[in-house]
Nucleic acid binder design. Structure first.
Length: 562
RNA sequence: GCCCUUGUAGUUCAAUGGAUAGAACGAAGGUUUCCUAAACCUUUGAUGUAGGUUCAAUUCCCACCAAGGGCACCA
């Protein structure tokens, strides 16, 4: 257990003893709005009812009985940052290093997280990035809390969109020169397809025909599908590598269709599904979940045909405690319908749709179906270009290779942070102009803070001083505030995991950096008395470690020099 | 029509019923013989409207206004 948590438990015990009732819990302690008020606080309003006393009076009485506490109105404030506290926190971090913030569990759960659900034959855009970044970060965060996480992706390589792209490919790009980035090229074709379909009378029939060929796995169309499918998958793998996203397993829709069709037959016999207007549907109106179409009137498959067998396969093969789907909120009705069908089938699993809001552009909604997207490639190239320029400006003596490597790390970090800093529950308005800003609440700001600390630590040549010999009495107010801030890190991670919100970590790391940068400007670390240098270096090490650990949970690399 | 979100500073976002509603960007001004100025400091400015519950409401409830999303053959 982390030291701050221990302190809260101890304090709660002391207070409960003093009032002779078991009313206060560790989690009742919060932090005062102003650091001068104290390090931790208990609001006495809730005690007021149980003790039948004015909250101000309770606070005042308690402050007399409990050491290091003062009452301000109804609040009972405590000072924590004494020598022992500082030592304990810095010791914890120095011992645990990259494990600082992690939790251990007795009952380890096996949780599958499905994300990175891309469509082949379509553009990969900023909306998909939100999915990837969230999934990547959440798996790391949940893993840090002691559970076993299996990261999987599910590629939709079989929907009608593939037939649409193939249709446009044959019609308008048959003789086109195929560029290097073939996956991106397919995205462009898809956009063309959507436009041309609107203008063409026979398009729908022709596309339906292709779709049937794909279901039959025959003909030139199927061959072309196989070839182009690979283009997309290669593109995805390249992007995952670039973004440092690692998956344990990838499922493909096309691999579950045949199995799905058999299950659909069974479900028809069990009357879970029925025929209506030649299509196969699930009538879920009595559960207030409307109607879900499973198979089209022409006999071709829709998405539940693969989703149902996949869910069964996952649960049985992996023996999951939890099965989490990270998917756009616009599919929340669909997931409720899917989960209901799984339940009707008797599948004992705990599926969870972890939704997040979509990404829009300043001009409005983004939609690959209407060709209004910013692709991954576009964003990356623009930010990278800017990043290279900024890096060159600062390091005229660096080699091109070093500049490019650093600039790429900054670029990926900037993209990830820009998305993750915002709560998953809110719509993101993605503004490329703002994404090119490397100041303020951005990844480069955090990376820069880390690089600065690193630069000091590099210049410090160790005296090999023991933590227990360091004079922490010499710590000033700002330094104590920094220690207090890093002591909160483990509970920030816990909070972020419980709420599935990487944004909590992003905000915390930013605040920590702000406090540090302010400190940096006021206080010399190396050019001062030796004993102060030793003490400050120790503090800096702890801050750097905390920044590194936190950024790692967001999937962001720290940079030693920038 | 039914269901679900969301309205906070010029803009983009915080604040899980608690102390003076915080940041960032923008705008205006300032800091470099001093460990990286991708930094720091100062100024500027906001809870859609009208009620209710509460000792206390940005937060909970109701109505209205506004925006967005989902709802039978896209995923």
């Amino acid at each position: 257990m982390y030291f701050l948590q221990k302190i809260k438990i101890d304090l709660a015990k002391k207070i409960n003893k003093s009032i002779d009732k078991n009313l206060v819990k560790a989690k009742d302690f919060v932090y005062p709005p102003q650091p001068e008020m104290g390090d931790i606080t208990l609001a006495c309003f809730n005690l007021s009812k149980a003790l039948k006393k004015m909250p101000n009076k309770i606070a005042k009485e308690l402050s007399k009985k409990i050491e290091n506490s003062t009452a301000i109105g109804p609040y009972l404030n405590f000072k924590l940052t004494d020598k022992k506290f500082i030592y304990k926190i810095l010791y914890e971090i120095a011992q645990l290093k990259k494990n600082y913030g992690k939790q251990k569990k007795k009952n380890i759960k096996k949780i599958m997280i499905e994300y990175c659900n891309q469509n082949t034959h379509k553009s990969l855009h900023i909306g998909h990035l939100r999915n990837m970044f969230l999934g990547n970060s959440l798996s790391k965060i949940l893993e840090s809390q002691g559970d076993k996480i299996i990261k999987v992706s599910y590629i939709n390589d079989f929907g009608i969109h593939t037939a649409q792209t193939l249709w446009a490919f044959n019609k308008f790009y048959a003789n086109a020169k195929i560029p290097k980035n073939k996956g991106w090229f397919l995205g462009q074709i898809y956009t063309t397809a959507v436009k041309k379909i609107k203008q063409s009378q026979q398009a729908k029939q022709e596309i339906d025909k292709i779709m049937r060929k794909l279901e039959e796995k025959s003909g030139k169309e199927y061959m072309l599908w196989q070839k182009t499918r690979k283009w997309s998958i290669e593109q995805f793998n390249k992007i995952y590598k670039e973004l440092n996203i690692k998956l344990d397993k990838t499922f493909y829709e096309s691999e579950f269709i045949d199995q799905g069709k058999k299950i659909i037959e069974q479900m028809l016999r069990k009357k879970i599904l029925k025929k209506s207007q030649n299509a196969i549907i699930a009538d879920l109106r009595k559960y207030k979940l409307g109607i879900l179409v499973i198979m089209r009137a022409d006999g071709t498959s829709l998405y539940p045909v693969a989703d149902i067998p996949l869910a069964i396969y996952k649960t049985k093969k992996y023996k999951l405690d939890e099965n989490i789907y990270i998917v756009d909120i616009r599919q929340s009705l669909y997931f409720r319908q899917l989960f209901k069908l799984l339940k009707l089938l008797g599948l004992k699993s705990k599926p969870k749709h972890l939704s997040y809001e979509f990404v829009k552009l300043p001009q409005g909604m983004m939609s690959s179906r209407f060709g209004k997207v910013i692709t991954y490639e576009e964003i990356k190239e623009k930010i990278l270009k800017h990043s290279i320029k900024e890096t060159e400006k600062r390091h005229t003596n660096w080699t091109n290779k070093k500049i490019e490597k650093t600039a790429l790390d900054i670029t990926i970090a900037a993209m990830k942070f820009d998305i993750l800093k915002q709560s998953a529950k809110t719509v993101i308005t993605f503004d490329l102009k703002k994404a090119l800003k490397f100041e303020g609440f951005t990844a480069p700001y955090l990376q820069y803070t880390y690089a600065r600390i690193n630069s000091i630590l590099k210049k410090f040549h160790s005296f090999n001083s023991k933590l227990s010999q360091i004079d922490f009495d010499a710590m000033n107010f700002q330094e104590k505030q920094l220690v207090l801030k890093i002591s909160k890190y483990p509970e920030i991670i816990k909070d972020s995991a419980e709420n599935y919100e990487p944004s909590i970590i992003a905000k915390y790391l930013f605040e920590l950096s702000q406090t540090f940068n302010d400190y940096y400007h006021t206080t010399p670390v190396l050019r001062t008395e030796k004993k102060l240098t030793i003490m400050r270096v120790q503090l800096l090490k702890a801050i750097a470690q905390t920044l590194k650990n936190g950024l790692n949970l967001l999937g962001i690399k720290t940079i030693n020099e920038m």
